[in-house]
Amino acid sequence: MKTAFLGAVALVALLAAAPATPKPGATVHIRDDAFTPATITVRAGDSVTFVNDDDDAHTVTADDSSWDSEGLNQGEKWTHAFAKAGTIKYHCTVHPFMHGSVIVKAVT
């Protein structure tokens, strides 16, 4: 009984610590020196996970420098939440020909 009670307390604590609005995340793969898809549309508050599938280092860096994954090795991933509506352009600092966009729609 005591164990079950403690378990319930832990569960409540865990839920309280979790993000307020967990959303199913979109994923952008980095493959063959390209962001795939190059343009992705999400809702404000959503997260996007970037996964480096390449045998090379990449970064996911906002063109306005407001956020930066820093270096991602093969197999590494990085998640960023997009709070505000708008179109955010990004690139890879070690491969400047790699560009992508996240279109963030306002939640109505």
């Binding site: 280092a57 970064t59 930066d68 820093e70 270096g71 600092t93 070690v94």
Partner: peptide, 10 residues
């Protein structure tokens, strides 16, 4: 090189 100056810490 560009791999030596990644991010703010590089």
């Amino acid at each position: 090189g560009e791999h030596d100056v990644i991010g703010t810490e590089g």
